[in-house]
Amino acid sequence: MIDAFKYEQSVSNFVAFISAVTFSFFVNSKLTFKKRPTTTGYMIYIGIMGFLSILSGYVGDRCNTSPMFMLISFSVISLVIGYFSAKHLVFKDNTALLNKSELVTTPPLADRLLCDPDAVRHS
C-alpha cells in the first residue's frame, strides 16, 4: 500500500489495523457470538484493540525488540485478549446481569392502552 498510494507506513498500518479490527468485530458478532453488532460495542472493541496495538508498539520501541517478534507476539496477544474482551465486554449477555426480581412485569403503556383506555390516568 505504501508504494501503490504513496502513503507513509503509519497511514498504511492504520488502514490495515482498522480494516482487520472491523472485519474481526463483524465476524465475531455474526459467527462467534451470534449477537447483533452495535455502535457502542464497535467503539469499545476498537478502543481495546487500539490500546493493545499502541502498547505493543511502545514495548517494542522501548525494548528494541525485533519487529517480526512484535508482530507475532501482538498477533497472539490480540487474538486472546480480543476474544475475551469481545466475550465479556462487547457481546456480553446483559440479561444475565438482572435478577428475576428486577425484571419488569408491567406491560408497556401501548399494550395497556389497547386493553384499558383509562390506563393513561393510572400511569
Rank of each mutant, 00 (worst) to 15 (best):
I2D: 11
D3A: 13
A4I: 14
F5W: 11
K6M: 00
K6F: 04
Q9K: 08
Q9A: 12
V11K: 06
N13T: 12
N13R: 04
F17H: 02
F17C: 01
S19H: 04
S19R: 08
V21W: 09
V21K: 03
T22P: 03
F23E: 07
S24W: 03
F26N: 04
V27H: 08
V27S: 02
L31H: 10
L31C: 10
T32I: 15
F33T: 10
K34H: 13
K34T: 06
R36N: 13
T38Q: 13
M43K: 15
Y45C: 05
Y45I: 07
I48M: 08
I48F: 02
I48H: 03
M49H: 07
G50C: 01
L52S: 04
S53W: 05
I54S: 05
I54D: 00
I54H: 02
I54N: 00
L55E: 00
V59I: 15
D61V: 10
T65G: 06
T65A: 14
T65L: 15
M68L: 15
M68R: 15
L71Q: 11
L71P: 04
F74A: 11
S75L: 14
S75T: 10
L79T: 15
L79M: 13
L79N: 11
I81V: 14
G82K: 00
G82N: 03
Y83N: 07
F84C: 10
S85N: 03
K87G: 03
L89Q: 02
V90Q: 07
V90K: 00
F91D: 01
D93M: 06
N94T: 12
T95I: 11
L97D: 14
L97Q: 13
L98Y: 14
L98K: 13
L98D: 04
L98W: 06
K100I: 03
K100A: 08
L103F: 08
L103N: 04
V104C: 06
T106N: 01
L109E: 06
A110D: 13
L114I: 04
L114P: 03
L114H: 09
L114C: 01
D116Y: 00
D116H: 03
P117D: 02
P117K: 05
D118P: 02
A119V: 05
A119Q: 00
V120D: 00
R121D: 11
R121H: 15
S123C: 10
S123A: 14
